[in-house]
Design a protein around this nucleic acid. Structure first.
Length: 788
RNA sequence: GCGCCAGUGGCGGAAUGGUAGACGCGCUGGUCUUAGGAACCAGUGGGCAACCGUGGGGGUUCGAGUCCCUCCUGGCGCACCA
């Protein structure tokens, strides 16, 4: 029975050349695609280009070209490199996100998102990458640095477009459980990123006026122990009660100190009423309160929170114990019996939380609350080379998102990138229009969309890349999700989370019946290589290193070279191998073998000369084998071939591609050792079909010479009768330790076999003078004799 | 600090709780060859041996690389998330 199989590898950014990482990624996908085609499945296996993005702008400035020209040229080059790899790709589905016939549909989706309330604009304190001169989403800031540039990210207040990914926080989290074929690791990372916590929101009345301060806590059970309030410096209340000069001073000080988690605070001229106890507690502006989480305000319970404790000690604030524990174990944040809390005394944590929430609701001072760490996805980028956001601004400051009829908003070609800031801002003649609806002067939005938007739906567009609307709903329902999605783990959160959000948003807008875009995710390991450098710490490419008299030398200068550990291939350390050169020297099939042979595909692969060479040797060996004169075969040969078919299939399906290579060696070792040559025997056909996904060139070449005009058939059906082994080598243990093995047939009688075994010298000697207490016979597997 | 994953020969790695080290690389010896990053044959966990061996210690089991507890080491992720 044939079925649809959508096999997809993460599409590349057209940087200029493919690298070995791409090769490994695409070979893994290609083996799967070819296998499924042989199975008779309807295979979708497309390729395209993630073609918008900053490197094109930087390159344009550096090489005095245009981002589009640079990108188009790179695509052309990389496409020819991929074709040289002879991947079985659906090139008729090709797309590039920088092409109008891709991004105009994306603009349409933007409008739909806007209408559905999933795209909106707001002033926000955002992450500003000073090198790329653009805003970054939260996910794109790693350790306070830009994901691409590594520059320290600044905070800026800007009016920005956002996608309402928070609407889907709960579903993005709970649906992770449905993704059985995703690596646990990726799911955990997404889970942590979404960051669900269950707790309560509590209103603290400001003593000096009638306002309330909202606070989120996961520990409302410790409310009686609250001895202070702390807010982030960006909290609105700070502005109300402090002058800007002071705020700036505090901000500056916080920035300087925030590196090593030292806690500092400024006491505000206000206090809050404790919501239950009749007392006032002080309010601090504190550096350790995150403005991006919860309400940007906390209540401090020093006895039961490490951070609050540290802060309280520093500012001599009272520590009130409300959970039973030793005094010297403070701060104690575990479960325990509540004390010193009239409404909650004697309860454990969970019950106390339930009880206090009841109380908060009754008195209208709080509620149960679920908080998520994830925030809305900021998609505005102050860059030229991206998808224009379809909106215009009037001179009175209002704006309007365009109607679909007004699309596309075409990215203008004629641009000066050498100026400061976003090039589109300086293009007055492009920006300024007369709004056809109001006849008023208007200006186009100059921000472009984050390129992660482009890649959030490309797998959908592949299904129908020439359609005059974004997609066809029926096709989505029929052909999605992607069955196997293969790529690097570096996209664990960014791309994969955004895509999941997109799929769900589109499902709701268009009434689709797909919940998740990728049924199975496979993350391939990176490729590493030894690093080499000269005494002057200058990196040297592997191909420029020679061995002379057992010493490593640089090829021309003969400088001595030091060998460093194997690290991820990178241009900066020059430990790269060029795919083009490898293909020329070793050929496609050997390259494919090496990409999967030396370690499991999800682990890192160390590039070695020996590895690629032995892959090449295997190709030659198989080729030679099929030139040998035909011999007779026996049943055992048929069984071995059947076993081979079975194992290859199993290992492809399990992504254990390294074991496929072992299967190939095992088969040919057997055949050659026993001098069995199949030549044009029908078993050869079976073998060649199974070799085809891994070694398409060689397999086709041999088949066409052995079977002339015949086209190779489909993947063989397994004859399970041939897989069954009746002769076995039964392990015999005494006290659970292996003593010997005994050759017999499956389905033996326990009584008979024991009689025989007791005659064996090894067994006889071991059980002499001992009493056999028990015999464990795991039929056809093992026999274990227990003595006293 | 928290979470996750992993520790098996000289190396990469195999092993539904049932013969640990499949397969490959490397290495040793040999054959063939003008030569070979070629090919072929034999060997290759340790130990003379009895035996011992899957990071250390404990446990469950007739039986543990595999399951449980604990510790150590390494990698990855998150990191003042209230």
């Amino acid at each position: 029975m044939s079925s649809k199989k959508y096999i997809l590898e993460m599409f590349p950014y057209p940087s200029g050349n493919i690298h070995m990482g791409h090769v490994r990624n695409y070979v893994i996908g290609d083996i799967n695609a070819r296998y499924h085609k042989l199975k008779g499945d309807e295979v979708i296996h497309p390729m395209g280009w993630d073609a918008f993005g900053l490197p094109a702008e930087n390159a344009a400035i550096q090489f005095n070209t245009h981002p589009q020209d640079w990108t188009v040229k790179n695509i052309k080059n990389m496409k020819s490199q991929l074709q040289k790899l002879d991947l079985d790709l659906d090139w008729n589905r090709e797309l590039a996100t920088c092409n109008q016939d891709y991004y105009k549909h994306q603009q349409e989706l933007f409008i739909d998102f806007y209408k559905a309330g999933l795209a909106y604009k707001k002033d926000a304190l955002v992450n500003w990458d000073p090198v790329d001169q653009t805003v970054l989403a939260n996910e794109q800031v790693i350790d306070g640095k830009g994901w691409r540039t590594g520059a320290i990210v600044e905070k800026k207040n800007l009016s920005q477009w956002f996608f309402k990914i928070t609407n889907y926080a709960e579903e993005l989290l709970s649906d992770l459980d449905k993704l059985e074929l995703w690596p646990e690791k990726v799911k955990t990372m997404q889970k942590n990123w979404i960051g669900k916590s269950i707790g309560a929101e509590i209103k603290f009345k400001i003593h000096e006026n009638s306002d309330y301060l909202n606070i989120f806590t996961t520990r409302p059970d410790t409310i009686y122990g609250a001895t202070f309030i702390a807010v982030s410096v960006n909290h609105p209340i700070v502005k109300k009660f402090s002058d800007q000069e002071l705020i700036n001073k505090i901000k500056k000080e916080f920035e300087e100190i925030n590196n090593d988690k030292d806690k500092i605070g400024y006491k505000m001229p206000i206090s809050c009423d404790h919501p239950i106890l009749n007392k006032k507690i002080p309010v601090f502006i504190a550096n350790f309160v995150l403005d991006t989480y919860g309400e940007g305000a906390i209540f401090g319970c020093p006895a039961h929170d490490e951070r609050d404790y540290e802060f309280a000690k520093k500012y001599s604030l009272p520590v009130i114990k409300v959970i039973e524990c030793d005094d010297d174990s403070l701060p104690y944040s575990g479960d325990g019996v509540v004390i010193n809390s009239p409404l909650l005394n004697g309860l454990n944590k969970d019950d106390a939380i339930k009880e206090i929430i009841k109380f908060l609701i009754r008195d209208n001072i709080g509620n149960e609350k679920i908080n998520y760490k994830i925030r809305d996805w900021g998609v505005s980028r102050q860059r030229y080379w991206g998808c224009p956001i379809p909106a215009i601004y009037y001179e009175d400051g209002t704006y309007r998102v365009l109607d679909k009829e007004e699309l596309p908003v075409i990215l203008p070609y004629d641009v000066n990138l050498k100026g400061k800031g976003n090039a589109l801002l300086n293009m007055e003649n492009w920006r300024k229009i007369i709004c056809p609806k109001t006849n008023k002067v208007a200006y186009r939005e100059t921000d472009t969309l984050d390129t992660f938007v482009d890649s959030s739906w490309y797998y959908i567009r592949f299904l129908d890349n020439k359609l005059e609307k974004p997609f066809d709903a029926q096709k989505i329902n029929k052909l999605l999700p992607v069955d196997k999605y293969i790529g690097g783990i570096e996209h664990a959160i960014l791309h994969l989370l955004y895509s999941r959000f997109f799929m769900k948003a589109l499902r709701d807008i268009y009434n689709l019946n797909v919940d998740e875009p990728f049924r199975q995710l496979f993350t391939q390991g990176m490729i590493t290589h030894k690093t080499y450098r000269t005494k002057d710490n200058e990196w040297v490419m592997p191909k420029d290193v020679v061995i002379k008299n057992k010493r490593l030398l640089k090829i021309k200068t003969e400088e001595p070279i030091e060998e460093g550990p194997s690290e991820k291939m990178s241009k900066s350390k020059k430990n790269v191998i060029e795919p083009d050169e490898i293909l020329d020297t070793y050929g496609i099939d050997a390259t494919r073998i090496f990409m999967i042979s030396d370690s499991p595909p999800d682990r890192e692969l160390e590039w070695t000369d020996e590895g690629i060479q032995s892959s090449k040797n295997l190709v030659h060996r198989i080729e030679r084998y099929f030139l040998k004169k035909k011999t007779d075969i026996d049943l055992e040969t048929e069984k071995k071939v059947e076993r081979f078919v079975h194992n290859i299939e199993k290992n492809i399906l399990e992504f254990s591609l390294n074991k496929c290579i072992a299967d190939i060696y095992t088969l040919f070792n057997y055949l050659e050792k026993n001098q069995i040559y199949l030549y044009d025997n029908e078993l050869s056909e079976k073998i060649l079909i199974c070799l085809f996904p891994v070694l398409p060139r060689l397999s086709s070449k041999i088949s066409s010479s052995l079977f002339k005009n015949k086209i190779l058939g489909n993947w063989p059906n397994i004859n399970y009768a041939l897989l069954a082994e009746d002769k076995i080598n039964l392990p015999i243990q005494i006290q659970g330790k292996l003593v010997t093995t005994f050759e017999t047939i499956k389905g033996y009688e326990e009584k008979d076999i024991l009689n025989s075994i007791y005659q064996l010298d090894k067994i006889k000697n071991k059980i002499a003078n001992k009493e056999v207490l028990k015999v464990i016979n795991v039929q056809d597997k093992i026999i274990n004799i227990i003595t006293n």
